[in-house]
Design a protein around this nucleic acid. Structure first.
Lengths: 203, 203
DNA sequence: CTCAATACTAAACGATTGTTTAGTTTAATT
DNA sequence: AATTAAACTAAACAATCGTTTAGTATTGAG
């Protein structure tokens, strides 16, 4: 919908309807996300995105502006998906046990068909370059901070009070979780289960 | 140096000397390794390699055959570098403490100028694709197996006997170390020190 | 000095990269 | 039906990718 008589100078605007989009932007972003997740930013080409998203380059550019913008939208969507299980953790009546369950859910989330996709964010961390876009870095930092905050809340819930010690445990758990998803791309499920169990022996 | 009279049928071979190489292959592989280490396989172009190695494409191809072969040589060289500190661990009179020191040495090895390069092998793990070369996968597996073996040896040294439990601790430590190097690319040194200290609380 | 083998330079190869553009189709309002 | 804005198709863009090739320079023995 757009104005056909230029800038709004009067109280009555004349409207003209144009052709409708044949795709849903939320749907195609989800498809792009899965491709970026598995292949990474650089190894995903516009050609691949066209095929996966089912729309052509013009549509991608008119909806998202650039490959980079589409990537950022994909990261945001991923964070949204993760925040679903993060909220479950937050709502749980358990403390540390709930964090452990969260690790298992996170591992499940990274499962692909016969292989592990890892965590989209930690995959992106590993692709980071000195010339990576600032807005991509922001997504990574915010993701990490969000999870740390919930871990901290749960640890305080279990241990009773805030302390430097508990803060450091939260830091430890965040990095363990990032390590978990990275490693899951190469090591089998049994080894990852063993990793989670050992990690929570320390807490 | 090559024979100029074909296959060796007689006792006397006629030799012809040709132009000498103006570069040392071991030296230029080291330079390639650093570039692959920082940028990854796909994000390193032949143009960058020419510049970094100080020789041109023809020389790279005549010495190594392809970009992929050069990458594999780079991985081998990296393993050689890591095996230096792995041997220190093996030779140490300490047990678990020596493994912890190994973690710190590994962290130091991944330090770049003002940023962390991570571990070349774990960076490569994260770039793995369903169409990644088998020989690249082999390098990763061998690297992982080598370290596990030394960790296991040290754990047995400290705990006195072999057991399923000790084997699982070795598995845990390998994945922790991979996680360590991945995370070091994004998190600061204090957080990584905290990670190492917490990890060895469990062992 | 000649010869043959190899190292080198530099240009070119076709394929693919992300992005843009020209031209056509669809839609609802006038 | 005419109009107009936006969605679409498809081709083209310059730049870069990994790899190859043609031509020249260097080597040391015969």
């Amino acid at each position: 919908m757009r104005l056909t008589n230029g800038l709004p100078k009067f109280e009555v605007y004349i409207l003209k309807m144009s052709r409708k989009k044949q795709y849903n932007e939320e749907v195609v972003v989800e498809k792009a996300m899965h491709l970026f997740w598995v292949k990474g930013y650089e190894n995903t080409s516009m050609q691949m995105l066209e095929k996966e998203m089912g729309i052509n380059k013009f549509s991608i550019y008119s909806s998202f502006g650039s490959k980079n913008e589409l990537f950022i939208e994909s990261l945001k969507l991923y964070r949204k998906k993760v925040s679903a299980i993060t909220k479950e953790l937050e709502a749980s009546s358990d403390g540390i046990l709930a964090i452990k369950q969260y690790f298992y859910k996170f591992l499940k989330l990274s499962a692909g068909k016969g292989f592990s996709k890892g965590c989209f964010i930690s995959n992106t961390m590993n692709e980071i370059d000195n010339k990576t876009d600032v807005r991509v870095r922001e997504q990574i930092e915010e993701f990490s901070d969000d999870i740390r905050q919930v871990f901290l809340k749960k640890l305080i819930f279990e241990k009773g009070k805030v302390s430097k010690f508990v803060e450091k445990q939260a830091d430890y758990l965040v990095i363990s979780m990032i390590g978990l998803s990275s490693a899951s791309k190469v090591y089998n499920n049994d080894l990852m289960v063993n990793y989670i169990e050992n990690t929570f022996n320390n807490i």
